[in-house]
Design a protein around this nucleic acid. Structure first.
Lengths: 202, 202
DNA sequence: GCGCGGAGTTAGTGAGCGTTAACCTTGTTG
DNA sequence: CAACAAGGTTAACGCTCACTAACTCCGCGC
């Protein structure tokens, strides 16, 4: 019962491959206890295989982290670019779309959000450079959108504001539980983010 | 040339003790590369002694982290309480004072801010509970202030908003460099935070 | 000047952990 | 059905690293 790859076109959710299971559990564990705080045996156990069996799917522990971080960064940038391409008319609408997209991501993939700014330095140089470059491009997307909406804002200030709003939106892991439903959280974060950006226009 | 303890009353800055040097460097290193990513030899080297010499000052590596995290949490709460006690009249002024205090802290002690929400799980149970309790009390201070200013906001929403604004204010480590001067950053963060909180009042 | 305790040093130890080796099972294919 | 590749298994190795042991140095009180 291993490699059924959802042969028909009817099943909407593709059956997760072993690799994907591993990545998902690794992301959760890394986010919970840090890259160095999680052993390969633990990751293996989380997907039902034990320890070194992971090396049939990844060349090493580092490679899992690398694939996770590069993947997040690529998906974020790709999503951002799509929104830029889709709504070139209204600056306010574009920024709103970026905010909504980032919120979706932050609420859907909380462990990845945590990893994203926490474990970057554990990567090999090449991977780290790649992730940094993708992050930078994503930030630039936002900076451009912000300055389109608030033209008086100097670039360095806009960039700092973007980072700050990222910090705001990425705060969801800290709420853990006890927060209102997903819809309410989404709406709240949206309001807070727009409130913050709105303060740029004095 | 070891233990001169600023004998006169004239010197304004107390000579840092060995313990304090160690804590400061450990904070920096932990923030840079994570608790598990830093070896005791490295911490020792950062203060000019080597490796196990640290054990004359701390019972173990964990104890350094514990003292750091408990210390931050206590100072934050203490500062918050002082501001609450000092400005009971105007809700807006109180929230502004809390924001200013937190910004000062975030800009003065960036490594500690990073540690604060990154390495909490590496603590022994007793220490972790203590830190969590201090953090909770600090958050409650803010929640009360926010709901004083925006009485229509439900508590869970106010708490989520406070956490989100913490994320915003604590984003300074991510800016690294290339940000405007300290004064400008302070002003920007203040505006963003108040913009976000202002959005709570519809 | 003698002992003593604080503060270091180097060498060593033991555990944890990432990784490799060697072997096994099973479904698939010619 | 033989051969093979994919995906596991357990055992073991080697390195890192927190921590301990044993020893040294030195300032200070008596």
């Amino acid at each position: 019962m291993s490699t059924q790859a959802a042969p028909g076109g009817t099943s909407r959710v593709a059956a997760p491959t072993r690799r994907e299971q591993i990545l998902k559990e690794a992301a959760r564990l890394f986010a919970e206890r840090g890259f160095h705080g999680v052993g390969v045996d633990e990751i293996g156990a989380a997907v039902g295989i034990s320890g070194p069996g992971l090396y049939r799917h990844f060349p090493g522990k580092d490679a899992m982290l690398a694939e996770l971080l590069v993947g997040i960064s690529e998906r974020l940038l790709e999503g951002g670019r799509a929104r830029v391409a889709a709504a070139p008319e209204d600056p306010a609408a574009l920024l709103a779309a970026l905010v909504d997209g980032h919120i979706d991501f932050a609420l859907d993939d909380r462990p990845l959000i945590t990893l994203h700014d926490r474990e970057l330095d554990r990567l090999r140089d090449a991977d780290r450079r790649r992730v940094r470059q993708l992050q930078r491009q994503y930030v630039e997307l936002w900076v451009t959108a912000v300055r389109d909406l608030h033209p008086a804002t100097p670039e360095s200030e806009a960039r700092a504001a973007v980072h700050a709003v990222f910090g705001l939106l990425n705060s969801t892991p800290h709420l853990g539980s006890g927060l209102p439903g997903r819809g309410a959280t989404e709406a709240l974060l949206r309001r807070l983010a727009h409130g913050a950006f709105g303060a740029l226009g004095d």
